[in-house]
């Protein structure tokens, strides 16, 4: 197996892991604090991609478009919380699931009506469009490095927000004891809306970052949401640290599995058998990992501390 390819795939895995974290962090934040299951979280990821695409064409620059799209998706998240989520908080999870499933149908159809059925490719500015040489024989697309950097900055920002600010303290307190936070005189509703907006911005950011590589397309949100579920299940629902580590783990396994599983299989089976079975196994790998982790640790790898 060749070294250059391995490093590049490792970076790809890291990139996928970070994008997954951006989506999963919002999910796990909302679930941990509001006990709310939001299937439509993936739709925000998709909206981020589409909005950023339109703005890129309008403004002629991807970076500006991204910076403007971020507050837009945050507002969408805020509106979603007010309109859809808030009336459902007191209901059980089945209602959350059905209500947000309905919301997905609505959002996806609206996106279909606005942007049409075909995907939209986003052109990158010249500065991001080239290749970067990391080491003598390792050349990677600059934009992938940009994704990783932007994702890590967002993750660090989230970490800072949650662990080192007053709002973050309230968020953490709200997760463990909602009544107490209300008793302290904090406007819990505003806090919830804020959490939703942050989650939406992060998911939207992930969509914007991936869109120049994959295009903005209609089904993209619904594919990533389930992978994000796998991430938070493996990490332990409600745990930010768990989500981060699980996202990297899942991103790596998925990427490396797709890239190298056939080579590994060829070590002990015929080459045609390996080529036939490797794609099937690697497509299932993250789910198999999830199943085996859950079998031994039903609460996930890093369950949040008991309430």
């Amino acid at each position: 197996m060749d070294y250059t390819l391995f490093v590049i795939q490792l970076l790809n895995g890291l990139q996928l892991g970070i994008l997954l974290f951006l989506v999963a962090s919002g999910l796990t934040l909302v679930f941990g604090i509001l006990d709310f299951v939001n299937l439509a979280h993936g739709s925000v990821y998709m909206l981020g991609a589409f909005i950023c695409a339109s703005l890129t064409f309008a403004l002629g620059n991807f970076v500006y478009a991204l910076l403007i799209s971020l507050p837009i998706v945050a507002v969408i998240g805020y509106g979603f919380e007010r309109l859809i989520a808030r009336p459902l908080y007191e209901r059980d999870h089945l209602d959350h699931v059905l209500g947000t499933f309905g919301a997905i149908l609505v959002i996806d159809t609206l996106a279909h009506m606005i942007w049409g059925p075909a995907g939209i490719a986003i052109p990158l500015p010249a500065a991001l469009d080239g290749q970067t040489q990391l080491a003598p024989d390792i050349i990677v697309p600059t934009f992938r490095l940009a994704i990783i950097t932007a994702g890590l900055i967002a993750a660090a920002g989230l970490y800072w927000l949650v662990n080192h600010t007053r709002t973050g303290m309230l968020i953490r307190a709200g997760a463990s004891n909602r009544t107490m936070v209300t008793a302290l005189g904090v406007d819990i509703q505003a806090l919830f809306s804020f959490v939703f907006a942050i989650g939406a911005a992060l998911a939207g950011l992930a969509g914007m970052l991936i869109a120049p590589i994959t295009e903005a397309s209609l089904g993209m949100g619904n594919n990533i949401i389930i992978t994000a579920f796998v991430v938070i299940i493996v990490g332990g629902i409600g745990s930010m640290k768990g989500a981060f580590l699980a996202a990297l783990l899942i991103g790596m396994i998925d990427t490396l599995g797709r890239a190298f599983l056939d080579d590994i299989f060829k070590l002990f089976m015929s080459s045609s058998a390996a080529e036939n079975s490797a794609p099937a196994i690697s497509s299932m790998s993250i789910y198999l990992i999830m199943a085996s982790i859950l079998f031994f640790r039903p609460q996930g790898l890093f369950p949040p501390k008991l309430r």
Binding site: P87, R91, D92, L98, G99, A103, L105, V106
Partner: peptide, 17 residues
Amino acid sequence: FGLLLIGVVMFVKGGLS
């Protein structure tokens, strides 16, 4: 269809459950 689903969940008293 999605709007209907949301409506049923929201406005059927106590939710669909």
